[in-house]
Simulated assay, not measured.
Amino acid sequence: MLKLIILGFYMPIMLTSLLLARHIFYTYVMESFDHKSIILDYLMEGLIFFIHEIIIIDFSFISLDLICFQYVLPIATFFLGRKRYANLNFILTPLIVFGFLKLKTGLVSTALIQIYLKAFLVWLTCWLIVMLKNIGFFGKFSLALSFINIFNTVITFFTLRNFYSIQDRIILFLCILFGTALIIIFIYAYLRDLKRRREMKKQITYDSLHDRLTNLLNYRAFSVFVSEQTSQDDLTILMIDIDNFKNLNDQYGHIVGNQILRFFANKLNSTFLKEYKYEVFIYRFGGEEFCVIIRDISVTDCYQTVLNLKKVLKEHPFRLKTHQKIDFSFSGGIARSTKTIHPRDALRYADTLLYQAKKSGKAKVNYGEEDQG
């Protein structure tokens, strides 16, 4: 009865704990090392794997008088970790098993060949399962773990057929299958929770850098971007402000005002992304103020795109649900950072040009000379 509990419950829990410990070690320890030594990586992996594998083999042998689940760590590393580490695991596993049995039972040296042959078949099975199509990575891991544990158990019981009755072999076999299923369930639950946490972290990061109303980048994202730039970066900066937006809010209400902001943000985004694709960054600073940063284009090219935006707004104006058209305009200022002008200075100059455009009548976009400081 104790053997059944160990096979069906205790070992799966222990193996899952070791797998999680390995994952945490790689995530928070190995990846935090500031080094580029592949040899050191392999030495650390080999040491950790050796310790964990000895724990599994020793506990299995002492408790059950046989070795089982010895390929769980290599298979998990193969499908859920790094294949280069998995290959090392498959090389080390036969050596560890042979060395352990040599010390415990005086196993003959020729048995090492048989143990390596089994390890090679397990490794080959993993590669064949990887090639299967229409199955996710976790499905492949589950298939490989189940098949290989069955294969390993059958081989082990065939080798030790004189030590176990048929009834004992069937019971132990079913317990190993149950234990394998538990490992798969535990790992699935962990990976699902890990995915949820990563998505949550990703969403928090996204929210911190984007404006909730328009989904454009926000001022915090702009500050991060500018802090990473140098005076060598060639950026054209456009500052835009919707004209008389307060009057629109007063006349139509804040709900319609928000709709206008979203509408304008979408047109701004689509117009510039269509022209420049991945080299444009669009921000909402707050209220009705927006900023566009484009790499490696001239001020006049940027101005031409602004004219295209005006054309788009004229041809496709904002309309209420009642189909009432609401016309609005915007003012802007364009400046460029160069080798002698830092992006922050270019931003201030673009803001000054925007202010001048609004002061001189609005619905205008001013731009400085290419070498303007």
Rank of each mutant, 00 (worst) to 15 (best):
M1L: 12
I5H: 10
I5S: 04
I6A: 03
I6M: 12
L7C: 10
F9K: 05
Y10Q: 12
M11N: 06
L15V: 09
L15D: 00
L15W: 02
T16A: 05
H23Y: 13
T27N: 14
Y28H: 15
V29Q: 11
M30F: 11
M30R: 14
E31G: 03
S37F: 14
I39N: 03
D41W: 11
Y42K: 07
L43T: 11
G46A: 07
F50R: 01
F50S: 10
I56V: 15
D58F: 13
F59M: 14
I62P: 02
C68T: 13
L73R: 05
T77S: 04
F79C: 05
L80N: 02
G81Q: 07
K83W: 07
R84V: 08
R84E: 07
N87V: 07
L88K: 04
L92W: 01
V97H: 00
G99F: 14
L103I: 13
I113V: 15
Y116E: 08
L117T: 14
K118V: 15
L121G: 00
W123Q: 00
T125M: 15
V130W: 12
M131E: 14
L132N: 10
G136H: 09
L143H: 02
L145R: 00
L145E: 02
S146T: 14
I150G: 02
F157W: 07
F158D: 06
R161H: 13
R161Q: 10
N162K: 11
N162Q: 09
F163C: 01
F163E: 14
Y164R: 05
S165L: 06
Q167P: 01
D168S: 08
R169K: 06
L172M: 15
F178T: 10
I183V: 13
I185Q: 05
F186S: 00
Y190R: 06
D193E: 13
D193M: 11
R198Y: 09
M200W: 10
T205S: 09
T205L: 10
D207P: 00
S208M: 09
L209H: 01
H210F: 06
H210T: 13
T214G: 02
N215L: 09
L217R: 03
V224L: 11
V224I: 09
Q229R: 12
T230A: 05
D234A: 04
D241L: 01
I242S: 03
D243W: 14
N244Y: 15
K246Q: 11
K246F: 11
L248K: 04
G253T: 13
G253K: 12
G257L: 05
N258Y: 08
F263N: 05
F263A: 01
N266F: 14
K267P: 02
K267N: 11
L268D: 08
S270P: 00
K274P: 03
K277W: 02
K277S: 00
V280C: 01
I282R: 08
C291L: 15
V292Y: 06
V292T: 07
I294D: 03
R295Y: 15
R295H: 13
L309K: 08
K310P: 05
I326K: 07
F328H: 09
F330D: 03
S331F: 10
S331A: 01
G333W: 06
I334Q: 04
R336S: 08
R336E: 00
T338I: 08
K339Y: 13
I341A: 04
H342N: 13
R348Q: 09
R348V: 04
D351Q: 03
D351E: 08
L353Y: 04
K358D: 01
K359T: 12
S360M: 10
S360I: 03
A363M: 09
G368D: 09
E369P: 06
E370I: 13
